[in-house]
Design a protein around this nucleic acid. Structure first.
Length: 777
DNA sequence: AGTAGGCCACTTTTT
DNA sequence: GTGGCCTACT
């Protein structure tokens, strides 16, 4: 293999650079993966580095698998010995090996968000906390954030009484994880890091082993991951990182692209290589990408260039509504396919998974098969989780979350009361739910616990015996046999029979898919299967070969490329998402997300938006994405019929006529609207009729193109001066007379009023633009 | 203990 | 619009 013939000058520099730390700043499509794989091959083949002394870390399994595949073709056999995987999988590998240093056993279970939520719910029940006030999901996120910042329960900063409660939950949560012999996603990284921090010999062992450490997508590392690679490369100091700050889209997950700057500080005389030649896109695509990303500050400007030629114009379609948007996409693809374009060359990208629905319907109607990445969440399906829970409790009988999940599946007359009783016994005997069940399974009515169980004793005993049976055979029979035995024992197939026919087929099909995986992992065993199930997301399990258009989120699109890319939902509030409106950094990230989407396209890019969009079952008027403001006119060709360029969505943005009508403020108004309505006034009815009216209006006029400017819809009219003052007396059509207590002028020009209504004897918060208030004096 | 019917939150993005 | 979850009934 001669790397010289396959690489450009910059790439070759990166591949062959020696001596310490190297930072490669790689623009999109600049051959980043090629550089990484070639470098690994080069180290093995030319530098004589033993493959097992190389560690390469990626963010997604997809990336890891891709690299594995390429490496395999370059240095056959030897490629397998390279430590190559995601941060999480590498950490698991280390943790299982070094379990003697850990508070868990080597067969620990990995808990996903659902498991975490289940655990938190149990704790909330124990603490008698209202799960409306303490939402398990929110607490889970809070704990996760703390862990990402390396804050342990004891260090948790308490400022409010709620913080105190959260700290208590956090503390119990960690204790329960330990008791369940389990780790959550964050623990995998955090425990690995503290293992290396606290045990010099362990750190030495790994750091001495890894002569070369390579990191992909370095801009997406968080603090913990940064520390991990720093420690793992601390002996040989051959750290090679590849990244692009413009493609950093995981800030919300703790990613900190400033790690690039930290790198520059921590490794004084490092090598820096810029990869600027783009091999993917046409110049038009790159021009657009550049005009979008150049609006972001604090970045290393890159001069991306291509030799692929100018290419065709970016096409823009301003859809009437989200159905029209989906129809446009499908229509366009259909006509291209008829012209001979391969269906697989298309990708449709969107901000939120929920946006795929309309597309799926349109594709189905057109009879075009499609490939959906993520979303559907195979692993989130009830039957899949059930079966995995059975396998997990066999693998790790301390796994209380899994036991609780399936102890009464299929229903065998074991209710909450009985489970709590068992859990109480476990607590008193300082054992686990699994231990208690095992004792019951073995001793039956001889067990001391038996007496306490009354009616549920028999069914519990039955389940316990099954469990003991599985534990006995788990090391003796093959994985598929164990799998079948469990399903037969609990009569799972029969259990799935109720429900509609398609549903049954669907569910059982999912179980069969798991069974197929059990066969696939027959050699590697239960540990590997469960690990794969925990760490490999749906994103990675999509059939590669399918010759169909791909539907995926912008996040999922990173690292991929397609001939023809649609980016849909370019509305303010969708992309950029309205949760980013308040925070400049988050807005910059939305822009990067858009940039990532644009740069996935090789030849043709389509930008699509919709003037109305159904959300939560009702229609909402949308305004064009503010990013349109940075799209140069000369790059765009209009695809919308009956539309002149002045009707192009973003002109309205320029006019500023709806700046106040950003998605965020509209959402707020809606919330306020709901809040302001008393239950007696049948909220939904009022709201629905408002929608129907709006719909009718659109229906009557036929085309959105000849609609009056949506932004001028009367109920959206914005004020720049407060109309109301505290102390004013007003009359509300439903609430009657009231006194204004407080007026707040939001940043977006919206007035929020606190009004005390004397008839209702109630204070209400109202959005001024939403209600017709008569000023009395 | 199981179930039906009503209520509600849901829609960022992922290992 | 819908699925998950709680409550109240059987």
């Amino acid at each position: 293999m001669d790397p010289r013939s396959l690489l450009n000058e910059q790439q070759l520099d990166a591949v062959t650079v020696t001596g310490g730390a190297t930072l490669v700043l790689a623009g999109p499509g600049s051959g980043k993966t090629r550089v990484l794989t070639h470098r690994i091959a080069y180290l093995i083949d030319q530098m004589g580095i033993p493959p097992y002394r190389i560690l390469a870390v990626t963010f997604t399994n997809k990336a890891a698998n891709e690299m594995k595949k390429r490496l395999e073709s370059m240095v056959p056999e030897r490629a397998q010995s390279v430590w190559l995987g995601t941060f999480h999988s590498i950490c698991v590998k280390i943790l299982r090996r070094e379990a003697r240093y850990l508070p868990v056993d080597s067969n620990f279970t990995i808990y996903d968000v659902d498991d975490q939520a289940a655990l938190i719910k149990n704790i909330l029940k124990d603490l008698n906390l209202n799960d409306k006030l303490y939402r398990p999901g929110a607490i889970q996120e809070t704990i996760s954030r703390a862990k990402n910042e390396m804050i342990m329960p004891k260090q948790y900063n308490i400022r409010t009484s709620r913080d105190a409660k959260i700290q208590e939950i956090y503390e119990r949560y960690q204790a329960n994880l330990r008791a369940c012999n389990a780790m959550d996603f964050d623990d995998l990284l955090l425990s690995a890091l503290s293992l290396l921090y606290e045990n010099d010999d362990v750190r030495e062992k790994y750091a001495a082993r890894f002569e070369h450490v390579l990191v992909d997508e370095f801009q997406d590392t968080n603090q913990i991951q940064y520390e991990l690679v720093r420690l793992l490369s601390s002996v040989h100091k051959n750290l090679f990182v590849v990244g692009d700050e413009d493609q950093s889209i995981y800030r919300w997950r703790g990613a900190d692209y400033r790690n690039v700057l930290r790198f520059e500080e921590d490794y004084g005389n490092f090598n820096k290589v810029l990869l600027e030649q783009n091999y993917r896109s046409t110049q038009k695509v790159l021009d657009l990408a550049r005009s979008i990303i150049d609006q972001n500050h604090h970045r290393t400007p890159k001069a991306l260039f291509t030799e692929r030629g100018s290419g065709s114009l970016i096409r823009f379609y301003n859809a009437e509504d989200d159905r029209d948007e989906a129809d446009y996409v499908v229509r366009t693809i259909q006509s291209e396919i008829r012209k001979g374009t391969s269906p697989a060359s298309f990708a449709i990208m969107y901000r939120m998974n929920s946006q795929s629905r309309m597309l799926e319907e349109a594709f189905m109607k057109a009879g075009i098969p499609y490939r959906l990445v993520g979303a559907q969440r195979f692993y989130g399906r009830r039957e899949v989780k059930d079966v995995i829970a059975f396998l997990r409790l066999v693998y790790n009988p301390k796994d209380e979350v899994s036991i609780r999940r399936v102890i009464n599946v299929p229903p065998r007359k074991i209710g909450d009361k009985s489970v709590e009783k068992l859990a109480e016994v476990a607590r008193l005997t300082e054992s686990s739910l699994g231990d208690v069940l095992q004792e019951l399974g073995v001793l039956g009515s001889q067990s001391e616990i038996w007496g306490a169980l009354d009616r549920s004793a028999a069914p519990i005993h039955q389940f316990a015996r099954l469990m003991v049976g599985w534990l006995e055979i788990k090391d003796k029979v093959s994985l598929p046999d164990l799998f079948d035995r469990i399903l037969l024992d609990v009569e799972y197939q029969e259990y799935l029979q109720d429900g509609s026919e398609e549903e049954v087929i669907d569910r059982w099909g999912n179980v069969q898919e798991l069974r197929r995986q059990a066969f696939e992992f027959e050699e590697l065993g239960l540990t590997a299967l469960l690990e794969n199930l925990a760490l490999v997301s749906d994103q990675d399990t999509i059939a590669e070969k399918l010759d169909s258009p791909t539907l995926l989120t912008l996040h999922a699109a990173k690292g991929l490329e397609f001939d023809r890319v649609f980016i849909i939902g370019l509305d303010d509030g969708v992309l950029p998402h309205n949760r980013s409106f308040e925070d400049e950094e988050e807005m910059a990230e939305e822009r990067r997300l858009f940039y990532v989407g644009i740069t996935r396209a090789r030849d043709q890019l389509y930008l699509v938006r919709a003037e109305r969009r159904s959300m939560f079952g009702s229609y909402e008027i949308q305004f064009p994405s503010r990013f349109f403001k940075d799209v140069p006119d000369e790059l765009v060709q209009m695809d919308s019929p009956q539309r002149s360029s002045t009707q192009r969505g973003y002109d309205r943005w320029e006019r500023g006529s709806y700046r106040n009508g950003s998605g965020r403020s509209r959402r707020n108004q809606e919330d306020l609207f709901f809040e302001s309505w008393d239950e007696k006034v049948t909220t939904t009815h009022t709201w629905k009729s408002a929608n129907t009216n709006r719909e009718n209006r659109v229906g009557n006029t036929g085309h959105a193109a000849i609609l009056p400017q949506q932004s001028d819809a009367p109920q959206r009219e914005k004020k720049t001066e407060p109309t109301y003052r505290a102390g004013m007396k007003v009359k509300h059509p439903s609430f009657g007379e009231g006194m204004i207590l407080n007026v707040r002028l939001e940043g977006d020009g919206e007035e929020t009023l606190d009004i005390f209504f004397s008839e209702l004897k109630q204070q209400k918060k109202l959005a001024a633009s939403f209600v017709k208030l008569e000023i009395l004096h």
